[in-house]
Computed example of a mutant assay.
Amino acid sequence: MHDHFLSLQTPLSRRQALALLAVPMAAPLAAPAWAATGAPLPQITLAGPPAIVSAPLIHMAETHALQGVAQRTVFTAWRDPDQLRMMAMGGKADVLAMPSNVAANLYNRGAGVALLNISTWGSQWVVTRDAARKTLADFKGEEIAVPFRGDMPDIVLQLLAAKQGLDPLRDFRIRYVPTPMEAMQLLITRRVSHALLSEPAVSLALRKTRSFPVGLIAPELHRGADMQQEWGRLYQRPARLPQAGIAAVGALRAQPEALAAVTRAYAQSLAWCRAHPMDCGRMMARHIDLLTPEAVADAIAVSQMDAVPLPQAREELEFFFGQLMARNPGLLGGKLPPAAFYTPG
C-alpha cells in the first residue's frame, strides 16, 4: 500500500552517515545552582535541517543558551529525513528538529524520542512560474519537483490532493528529488516550472531570481498554492499545520529540568529570531550553506512559527495524525501515539 512511502524505512548508508555536518564547539561554561546534584553534561548537540525550524537551535548554540544544562552547546545539520533518523537512533544528537510524524513514528517503534513542542505551523508553498495558479488543483497535469519522498512536505501534498479527489501520482507529474535545495535548483535553472518548497527555500528561490521584493515588472517566480491555506479550506480548520518541532532523544529524556530548559530556551530564541530577522538570517547563513541573510529574514516574515508546548498542541496533532492513519498507518509506525507521547518528561 502506497509504496511511495517506503522511504520511511530506508536505512542510511555509511556514506550518508559520514556526510553529517559539524560546527566548532563553543567554550565551556559553569553550571548553575540547579545542577549541583549532578555535573552538567559535557555537551549538548542540537540538530536540524536547512529550514526555518533550525534558526532557534542555531541561536541557542551561538548564545550558549543551555549553559545550565551542558558545558558546551553545538549545532549540526541533517540533510534529509534518513539522516535525521540515524542521528536520533544512533545517539548522534540530543535535541533534534524533526517532522511531527517522524517523532510519532520513532516513538511508536521504541526509539526513545520525546517531542517537546510544535514550532512550525506553516512554511510550505508550491512555487511557480505561472502566477495564475493559486490552488493545488490548478497544477493538475503539471510536473512538480517535490523533495523528501514519503516525508514532509510530500505527505501534505498527498493529503491535500486526495482530500479533493485528486490522485497525487496520476493527476500530477511528481518529480521526486532528495532535498529542498535540489528542488529549488531545478526551479531557478528552469528545468521545472513548479516546485513544492518549504521556507527558507521559497524565499531563497524568489531572491535568486529577483522575484522579490515585490514590485518588479515581471517577476519570474511566484508563490502559488499556499499549502496552509489549502489545509484550512479543505479540512475546514485553521490554516495551520503541526508540521515540525523539536524532540529530545537518549539520556536527556530522563532529565525533566533539562527538558524544561531546552523548551524554554527554544521559545526565547524563536522570539529573538522573529524580533531580529536580519540578524537571525546572518547567523543562520553562517551555519548552513546556500542560505542568505535576506532569504532567512523573508522566511521569518511569512512562516507561521510558534513554539507551542506539546500538551497544548495535542488536539491539532491528533487530527493531523488521524488523517495520516487513514491514508497510511506506516507513516506513524502503525498506530496513533499513546497519551504518554503528549506528556514529555
Rank of each mutant, 00 (worst) to 15 (best):
M184Y: 04
L216G: 12
L186M: 15
L234M: 08
H222T: 00
Q236S: 13
G245T: 00
V214M: 08
I217G: 15
Q236G: 15
M181G: 15
Q243F: 02
T209K: 10
E220T: 06
K208W: 11
Q228I: 01
V249R: 09
Q229K: 07
L186K: 12
L186S: 13
R237S: 15
Q185M: 15
A248Q: 03
R210T: 00
L241P: 09
Q243H: 07
Q236F: 09
R190A: 03
L216A: 09
H194W: 12
P180H: 09
T179S: 11
P238G: 12
G215E: 04
S211D: 04
R207A: 14
L197H: 07
L196W: 12
R191D: 12
L241R: 07
M181D: 15
L241W: 12
G232I: 01
P219S: 03
A195P: 04
R191N: 14
M227D: 04
R190F: 00
G224C: 04
A248P: 08
E182K: 00
A205K: 05
A247W: 06
M227I: 01
I246G: 15
G250F: 09
E199A: 13
T209S: 13
R240N: 05
F212L: 13
F212G: 12
P180C: 07
I217T: 12
S198C: 09
E230Q: 06
T179E: 11
A195T: 01
Y235K: 10
G232T: 03
L221P: 03
Y235N: 15
M227H: 02
D226L: 02
L187V: 03
S193W: 13
R207Q: 15
A247Q: 08
A195I: 00
L196E: 14
G224A: 05
H222R: 01
P238K: 07
G250A: 11
V214D: 11
S193D: 15
V249P: 13
R237I: 10
P180E: 14
G215L: 03
A225H: 02
I217K: 12
R191G: 13
A183D: 08
T179M: 06
R237V: 13
L206T: 05
A225C: 04
G232V: 02
T209D: 11
T179H: 10
R190E: 05
T179K: 08
L187H: 09
S211Q: 02
Q229C: 05
A247H: 06
R191L: 10
I246P: 12
P180A: 10
S203Y: 05
P200Q: 09
R191F: 09
R190N: 03
R191M: 10
A205N: 07
E199K: 09
S198T: 01
I217F: 11
